[in-house]
């Protein structure tokens, strides 16, 4: 699924991308490449991949890691005391949305980002119902708006995601969905 964030983010500040499962990894990689090319400071909220394999994968794709600050919600589930890393803050687990929110706020305050990339809302839906996840995203959008930056959210194109996508459609400037 072709997503042209470079162009979409010029006219839309809040974007939700809905991606078919089998195209997810490639689409995310393409979006990160676009963010890398368009911005100098990006917050990458990662809820699926351990920090080292994620950084390695991005490096392999010639992404400039110096431009990214990672809010990592998953590494601590596997390594309780991960080594401190520059431009990375750990959250205990992806289902701890309060700590996730606090961590994102901290990075918004200190990193002076241009854009926030949230990967992915589908992970939150594993642990909470769509209403709670919607509230979380609304609160995050309020912060993003307060800092005047752009934000891109990803989620899978699944049955479980339908209610969330419907609920968020009114809040987003653009929802990019696969062709029906």
């Amino acid at each position: 699924m072709e997503i042209d964030l470079k162009s979409d983010l010029k006219t839309n500040r809040l974007i939700l991308t809905v991606i078919p499962t089998q195209e997810y990894a490639e689409s995310v990689a393409g979006m990160v490449r676009d963010l890398n090319a368009s911005y100098n400071r990006v917050i990458y909220v990662s809820l699926n991949k351990l920090i080292n394999p994620l950084r390695r994968e991005l490096q392999d794709r010639s992404v400039d890691l110096g431009k990214f600050f990672f809010v990592d919600g998953v590494t601590k589930t596997a390594i309780p005391n991960p080594p401190e890393m520059q431009n990375c803050i750990y959250v205990p687990s992806p289902d701890d949305m309060t700590k996730l929110s606090i961590a994102i706020t901290k990075v918004l305050q200190t990193f002076d980002p241009d854009c926030l990339f949230f990967e992915s809302l589908s992970t939150l839906l594993i642990y909470e119902d769509p209403m709670i996840v919607t509230q979380f995203v609304h609160s995050l959008i309020n912060k993003v708006n307060a800092y005047g930056i752009r934000a891109v959210f990803t989620c899978l194109d699944g049955e479980k995601e339908r209610e969330l996508i419907r609920a968020l459609a009114l809040t987003m400037d653009k929802v990019i969905e696969p062709p029906k």
Binding site: A25, N48, K49, N52, V74, T77, A78, I79, T123
Partner: peptide
């Protein structure tokens, strides 16, 4: 045991840290 939610290609990273 630990529980993790991720994608297929990444699951092994958790086991192999």
């Amino acid at each position: 045991p630990n529980i993790v939610s991720t994608v297929g290609s990444s699951i092994v990273d958790f086991m192999l840290v």
